[in-house]
């Protein structure tokens, strides 16, 4: 046991990766499962707000781009469930926890998408925030998680660009389109900032996660990084950040901002956001309505599968 713990600590110390069969502290495993499952559920639930506009995408090009993007989110959910499975937690278990409200997902997906510019804002701000976090997680200490993040970051590199492209069209379009663009920024700015999680001082899980190099940078550090790179983009679009206190601090080179409304954050996290119930009901209903399909596939396999490897 001590020998194992020393080996584990040495791997972490040297910035090497922990692999599924390596010994790891229970708390390390638990933290990983919680973080990876939350990440996976976010990808999968995140398909819904964007899916809300898929059927109404205003051009053949935008429909294909949006569908490819939503499909990527599903794929990323799949990669992340696979990561959890290497820790001996089944996808089914994780989904049950989601349905029972025991597992969380990013609170930003509990906000509705109310106009087409929201699709731009999600790609640009929400994926933009996610990418800052995910780039950092490529260096996470758990091997399968790190490898999944590398693949995810590579695939997501088009997401933010497609979102920003929509914003450019909207911001440079008709008066109504500009209004939609500003409205989308107004509604998604703060929820995007909250995606980085609570302040470092209030973050229940940060301590060990940093020590074990599961998380590589703190919530507040990453949030500030996102603000600093995004505010100039808002200005480029000729839109405004919905925060009167957002200004560049010449000394630090960083943007200051108003305190975030953590009451709202906690309300949404605790199930009282505008769409929490709908998102979970949708996921649960699809699961239940298609039980017969999965049963059929299982029964068919039982009747027809052979060990022979030819198809």
């Amino acid at each position: 046991m001590e020998k194992h713990e020393a080996a584990f600590n040495a791997l972490i110390e040297q910035d090497l990766k922990i692999e599924p069969h390596d010994w790891m502290p229970d708390e390390y495993r638990k933290h990983l499962v919680r973080q990876v499952s939350q990440h996976a559920h976010s990808e999968v639930i995140g398909m819904q707000p964007e899916g809300n506009w898929l059927l109404r995408a205003p051009s053949l090009r935008s429909k294909q781009v949006l569908l490819a993007k939503i499909q990527d989110e599903g794929g990323h959910g799949l990669y992340l469930y696979s990561v959890a499975e290497t820790l001996n937690v089944s996808r089914e278990e994780l989904i049950t926890q989601l349905h029972e409200g025991k597992a969380r997902y990013s609170s930003v997906f509990n906000y509705p998408t109310l106009n087409w510019a929201d699709i731009g804002a999600i790609g640009w701000l929400v994926d933009g925030a996610a990418i800052v976090n995910q780039v950092s997680l490529q260096k996470t200490s758990y091997g399968p998680y790190s490898r999944a993040m590398v693949r995810i970051c590579m695939e997501e590199s088009f997401h933010q660009r497609q979102g920003f492209e929509i914003m450019i069209h909207m911001a440079r379009g008709t008066k109504e389109q500009r209004e939609m663009a500003q409205d989308a920024v107004n509604r998604f700015w703060f929820p995007a900032l909250m995606m980085f999680g609570p302040h470092d001082t209030d973050s229940a899980h940060t301590g060990n996660a940093m020590k074990w190099k599961i998380k590589r940078e703190s919530n507040d550090y990453l949030r500030q990084k996102f603000i600093d790179k995004t505010v100039p983009q808002v200005e480029f679009l000729g839109l405004t950040v919905p925060d009167p206190n957002c200004r560049l601090n010449e000394t630090t080179g960083s943007y200051e901002h108003s305190p975030l409304d953590w009451n709202e954050f906690h309300d949404v996290i605790n199930g009282y956001g505008p769409c929490n119930t709908d998102r979970l009901d949708h996921h649960r209903n699809v699961q239940q309505e298609n039980r017969w399909v999965r049963e059929a596939a299982a029964a068919y396999a039982q009747k027809t599968e052979t060990v022979n490897s030819s198809l």
């Binding site: 799949l78 696979s82 996808r91 490898r147 999944a148 299982a298 027809t304 599968e305 198809l311």
Partner: peptide, 19 residues
């Protein structure tokens, strides 16, 4: 590359292709 779920081998290879 990773893993996929599949109920039979044909589905598994197709799911792997699609994912």
């Amino acid at each position: 590359a990773g893993s996929v779920h599949g109920y039979d081998k044909k589905m598994a290879v197709q799911n792997a292709r699609d994912a």
